[in-house]
Each structure stands twice: as structure tokens, then as C-alpha cells.
Design a protein around this nucleic acid. Structure first.
Length: 194
DNA sequence: CGCACGATGCTCT
DNA sequence: GAGCATCGTGCGC
């Protein structure tokens, strides 16, 4: 049984905070002819256009250009010189908002993920925004600016029938640190930080 | 166990 | 030139 990609309307018909909440339980998939890895999204953060922590807060630049694309666009950026993080762009074209994917529960292609992450510890495979990018083999040149309705990186519907969601402030930022824009699946072992 | 810190390079000021 | 939506290690308790 192969789950279908979520349609564009899943990303375009809701505001950014709602999308961040509704992405919990959905499955992020990287599928190429030689590779199939995936994980259940268990932690997200919303970044809004009027939010000082948002990369698109000031203006459109080379780095953040993908954030201004239509909902369902992929935004990948490099952080601390050595890591990469992946976002799902939300809201209308021209408005720089997105949802950061912060943690996955490993689902398919676990051996491949273990090779990429150089660890067999399932808890360490994708329990952080840069960890999951490495585990799934997401790359900036290939995926930044791509669309979830086409291409090798996509999202399929929720596999969690019922769960409790926890809302907190976001992790690792100084600006906008008091905003309650982080969401995660309660008691899930793969959330980056309870 | 938890906390502190260094790695490392690009982007924007 | 400063700062960064992180991670892994190393040390102290």
C-alpha cells in the first residue's frame, strides 16, 4: 500500500500555525530510484512574516527566496556552517512564512538512515532538525525551492489516529523567543526536547 | 545525568 | 565582523 502525496490545498488552505499543527502525524518521504526513507513528523515550529525570528522578517534575499514561494514549496537552509534544516512554506506566494520540521519518528528505510547518520541508535536518527535532514538525504541544491506535489521529497497523510499535542516556545532562538509557535506529539520518544 | 562549548561557513549588517 | 531555527563531545556531579 502506497500513501498518496497530500494535495496542494493541504498546505495552501490554512494559516501557518494551523499547518504546523496539522503536519504532526503526517509522513515526510524522500523517494528516489535508489532510496526510500521516511519518518512521521512529531515536532514542528511556525515562522510568521511579522515574527523577528523568521528568516523572511526583513526582506527577500538569495537565502530565503524559497520562503516567498507558494504554499507547499520546500525551503532548505544551512545553519552553523555545517548543518541544514528543512521547512514547508505556507501562506500565499509573496508572503515569507514557513513551518520548520524539527523531528521525525523513523518509519521506512531505517538502515539507510542509520548509515547516513553513522549511528544505530533509533532515538538519535532524526530527533532534531539537522539530524532528520541528514537521515533522509535532503540536500539544499536539490530540494530548496522544490514543490511537495512534484519531486523526490513529499508528504503523505497522517498515520496517527489520535494524540495529544503540546504547545511551547521555540528552541534555539533569541528573537521572538516568547512566542508559542512550537508544537509536538506528547510523549513521543523522537521529539528533540520534551 | 546535565551543562558548556567548539566546530565551521555563509549571510546580512 | 557578528550572528546563526544545531550537534556531538567532554567534563563535572
Amino acid at each position: 500500500m502506497v500513501a498518496e502525496r497530500l494535495p496542494l490545498s493541504f498546505f495552501s488552505d490554512v494559516d501557518t500555525i494551523t499547518l504546523a499543527q496539522q503536519l504532526l502525524g503526517c509522513v515526510l518521504v524522500h523517494q528516489t530510484p535508489e532510496d526510500h526513507t521516511s519518518g512521521v513528523i512529531v515536532e514542528t515550529e511556525a515562522y510568521l512574516t511579522n515574527d523577528p525570528a523568521c528568516h523572511a522578517y526583513r526582506r527577500k534575499t538569495t537565502r530565503n527566496a524559497a520562503m516567498f514561494g507558494p504554499a507547499g514549496t520546500v525551503y532548505v537552509y544551512q545553519i552553523y556552517g555545517m548543518h541544514y534544516c528543512v521547512n514547508i512554506v505556507s501562506n500565499n506566494e509573496g508572503i515569507g512564512e514557513a513551518v520548520l520540521i524539527r523531528a521525525l519518528e523513523p518509519k521506512e528505510g531505517i538502515e539507510q538512515m542509520q548509515r547516513r547518520r553513522q549511528t544505530t541508535d533509533l532515538r538519535q536518527l532524526s530527533s532534531g532538525p539537522a539530524k532528520l535532514v541528514k537521515a533522509l538525504g535532503i540536500s539544499l541544491p536539490i530540494h530548496n525551492g522544490s514543490t511537495l506535489t512534484e519531486g523526490s521529497l513529499f508528504i503523505t497523510p497522517s498515520v496517527l489516529s489520535q494524540f495529544q499535542m503540546v504547545t511551547t516556545t521555540r528552541i534555539g532562538i533569541t528573537q521572538g523567543a516568547d512566542l508559542p509557535y512550537r508544537f509536538y506529539v506528547k510523549d513521543n520518544a523522537f521529539v528533540s526536547k520534551q
